[in-house]
């Protein structure tokens, strides 16, 4: 008998809880209905990305010593470097990064001894064809390349190549 009594009380308790919790839940959503949305409309408002964003690479061929460390450290072998000549006569003929493979791990930038390769805050990396994923840094200004691939996105703020960081973090860490 007491079982049935407790079941009866439990029934009403549950009903009460259901009514109260449902009403409170409605309150939460109602509050949000009249508050401002947190999202932005993407093509109109571009997201702010912070300094040091691991986006699309920037490469300064003048300072490159063609040491191939970036090529070696890349976990996916997406960097392709071709060098002609020997010793002081060496000349860079090809520097490509295949963004179809790139992990954006920053290892190549960290390993670069002259900091001639770094990652920029450029995040819009979409393209239409798989072959467009490969950017030839030796050929032309990569910024222009991207503009060519993405004529519709011209309003994207063109970011001037930033000054490279003074040194790769791994070396900086030596001085505590």
């Amino acid at each position: 008998m007491s079982n049935q009594v407790s079941a009866f009380i439990g029934y009403w308790k549950t009903a009460w809880r259901a009514v109260v919790s449902s009403t409170l839940g409605l309150g939460v959503t109602l509050k949000h209905l009249f508050s401002r949305p947190v999202t932005v409309e993407y093509p109109k408002a571009l997201p702010e990305v912070p300094e040091g964003w691991r986006g699309w690479h920037a490469y300064e061929s003048d300072r490159c010593t063609m040491c191939r460390l970036c090529e070696q450290v890349c976990p996916v072998q997406c960097i392709r470097l071709e060098v002609e000549g020997k010793g002081r006569e060496r000349k860079l003929v090809r520097y490509e990064i295949n963004y179809g493979l790139c992990l954006f791990c920053n290892l190549c930038a960290e390993v670069c001894p002259t900091a001639c390769l770094w990652m920029t805050a450029d995040w819009d990396l979409a393209c239409y064809r798989r072959t467009d994923c490969t950017i030839r840094f030796h050929e032309t200004d990569p910024n222009e390349q991207r503009q060519r691939l993405w004529p519709g996105m011209k309003e994207l703020p063109a970011r001037a190549p930033k000054k490279p960081r003074e040194a790769a973090p791994a070396e900086k860490a030596q001085t505590p």
Partner: peptide, 8 residues
């Protein structure tokens, strides 16, 4: 739905 979910 959008406004409740803090979207547009």
């Amino acid at each position: 739905a959008g406004r409740i979910q803090a979207r547009q």
